[in-house]
Design a protein around this nucleic acid. Sequence first.
DNA 1: CCTACCGATCGGTAGG
DNA 2: CCTACCGATCGGTAGG
Lengths: 196, 196
Amino acid sequence: MSKIKPGKNNSSKEVIVKKAAALFRQKGYKAASMRELAETLNIEAPSLYNHIGSKSELLQDICLKVADTFTANLVNIEKMQGSIIGKIEAIIRFHIKMMLENFDEVFVANHEWKHLQEPFFTDFLNQRRNYEKRLMTLIERGIQKKELEKNNSYIVVLTILSAVRGLEFRQRHKKNISAKILEDTMVNQLLNGIVK
Amino acid sequence: MSKIKPGKNNSSKEVIVKKAAALFRQKGYKAASMRELAETLNIEAPSLYNHIGSKSELLQDICLKVADTFTANLVNIEKMQGSIIGKIEAIIRFHIKMMLENFDEVFVANHEWKHLQEPFFTDFLNQRRNYEKRLMTLIERGIQKKELEKNNSYIVVLTILSAVRGLEFRQRHKKNISAKILEDTMVNQLLNGIVK
DNA sequence: CCTACCGATCGGTAGG
DNA sequence: CCTACCGATCGGTAGG
């Protein structure tokens, strides 16, 4: 009898990965136990292994899927027509949207990837470096085209990514802040600053 | 025979805390073992307990000291004369300096504080919320005084803190980026943006 | 500061 | 999907 209910668009494993993302985000990968994960699914821990290979496989699934999503988005944006500023804006907006809509997964990919085992650790790190390098190239082209002020592109990318990756929204709903306002304000600050 | 060498300005415990910060940053609090920590000090694990009370006490020392340092700086800046913009700039610069000069401790305080035990967990969280609230007040005063554009102060604070707290400098030395350039560029982006 | 050791918990397997 | 269980590792103590 299947207690984990796969739907039409998700397998049993996907149900487990989703719960794992939530648990890993709350407790951290190392502090989250497979017994706890099983409990959220109302099964015993050993039953998990009928659907998955190992704990670290769950982390791999989460991190690699997030990384691929961001990379795929970047590829699309690079192909787009339009100004460099428009592209950078689109990238920042995508990061914020992902954070809002897939918080557990993105948070885990951002904060727990150091627990990946090889070769996934190296793959993930390389993909991340490649992503940052391509953002730097975009910034540099914006400077050449006089759309952007002349700044060290590495630091500009560092600042943008640091800001969007570290996002947490503890108080967002209490403060009644819509996704649109959050996006608009952050994009505007990172592109145009806050000084009058 | 004391194998942990306390100096004039640091006790045995402070030597251990320093090594613990480095280890917790690299592996994460939960994944770092007391046996590993002992190894970095060339002693056996049980010997640690002649100098410290517990593993979680090490995390407390690190997190509370960092939090107090930031709070003390904020108190000083609030007392300062000068524009709101000047104060916000000083706060951002302090964050970056702390990240550069005390990377292990600040990183651990930013990323591992969820593993604090009560009542330290709640104390830390409250101190953090208080810090954010006071930054918001500063932003709001800047808007009133027409120094800053009208923006949601919560989001502005979120963006600034997210950017400075998430900083990592993996490639900084390879890219020959001085602390001054890093500080100046980040402050400038967060205050004035990057668009020409 | 060390040796010897403990109870708890972990990820995971065997077998049904 | 479960019960029963294993070896490894953990934080920490006793006693010297």
